[in-house]
Design a protein around this nucleic acid. Structure first.
Lengths: 221, 221
DNA sequence: TTTTGTGAACTAGTTCACAGCT
DNA sequence: AGCTGTGAACTAGTTCACAAAA
């Protein structure tokens, strides 16, 4: 029992929409802290993005009572709570699977470093890439060594950016290596075993949804 | 009246979840056509991803009656319909805003080319990049020329990959240049005027949602 | 018989509105 | 007075289940 929270339950049915928003709140709190703001109300926070204040309070209420009535939330305090809830109170070790253009760009993406993620390795099949490293110095290993390395390097999260044909087999390797969470940029459907979390970003789908908007003549928001 | 559809309405309230799925159906149909499959039932299609058959039928029903009772959907026919609905029956011209690591990787991403997107230009502020081009030959222009170029090159969609601080001003430039749809990889909240569509991919939020999963001990799914 | 298209039932997510702390 | 935490009301999205078409 770390803090005196009246918790709903360990993590009873928190939707992904909620956890995504927690991330966004945290980013905002970082800025607020930087700006020297001490407390913030759900109302003021909601205005930053276009969100409803009750939504924010509900999101937070899943994890405890962090606010003070009549005052709002203490920025520093809430930030710490959110970091803990999101598991960002420890360094998370990330491996990028696939050292192509996109993989290398992701490995060097500065945004990841900022919130405690550490990109420790890339993996690829191409002999000429293995032994090389990315611009920012992330070493590229043979994907066949993934299992060995993932354990040795204690990889928490995999970021997968490989061609669609390779995606399932690379995912299976990552799972066999004990990686429990994967952010996937490869297109197409992928099967995962229970107990492993896959989050997919599908660039083609995203672009096509914009195309749809344009094709429909862009009515509404 | 192209085809004899009993349409619900021009584009009456189709949710983004639906349009994203249309994209996924289309990808699957492409594979099926390649594999020489002639017809497919909503049930069979649903099994490919883990989706409900009624969901697929409902999604399609927003746009017309494309199926044949007792048979299913003609793969070729449905593919054509979906391409038209998604606005992929014409080439879409895309500009990448921000020629950093991520921007260049996106400009060269082969997945975009496949479904009729054409990356025609990149824009950046860095003098040393301007005039240069990406690995696959996409030229980099001065962002100050965006307005002029966007009209001349008939840019339909912008893909934004710039630092958070620059995001709002780059977006404003794109909007001023007449770009009506933007896929955004920059973190943080961005304001857009009505009639412009912004779709954001937030890499940090995605990773943090995986971190959350790990922190909660990975119960469920 | 098979499978669509769709109203009805259900489930999830959001917003309202207000009691209850500070 | 001000703002949280939360049940109740509402809205959106999904799944069921079945009549109607081929």
């Amino acid at each position: 029992m770390k803090s005196g929270n009246k918790r709903k339950a360990p993590s009873d049915q928190v939707s992904e929409l909620t956890t995504n928003r927690l991330s966004i709140y945290l980013r905002c709190l970082n800025r607020l802290e930087q700006a020297g703001v001490d407390t913030i109300s759900s109302q003021a926070l909601a205005e930053q993005f276009h969100l409803n204040a009750a939504q924010i309070r509900k999101d937070l209420a899943y994890f405890g009572e962090f606010g003070v009535r009549g005052v709002g939330y203490y920025v520093k305090d809430l930030k710490l709570h959110l970091r803990k809830i999101l598991g960002l109170d420890r360094k998370l070790r990330v491996a990028v699977l696939g050292a192509g253009n996109l993989g290398q760009a992701l490995a060097d993406y500065p945004g990841f470093g900022r919130e405690g993620f550490e990109i420790v390795a890339m993996f690829d099949t191409a002999a000429e890439k293995i032994g090389d490293q990315s611009r920012s110095g992330v070493p590229i290993y043979d994907i066949r060594d993934l299992k060995k390395m993932a354990r040795r390097e204690r990889i928490d999260i995999g970021v997968m950016a490989v061609p669609a044909e390779a995606a399932q087999s690379v995912l299976d390797m990552a799972v066999a290596a004990g990686v429990k969470a994967i952010l996937n940029f490869s297109p197409g459907a992928i099967k995962i075993p229970l107990g492993v979390k896959l989050k997919s970003v599908d660039l083609t789908v995203s672009l096509e949804s914009l195309s749809f908007y344009l094709a429909q003549g862009g009515e509404g928001e």
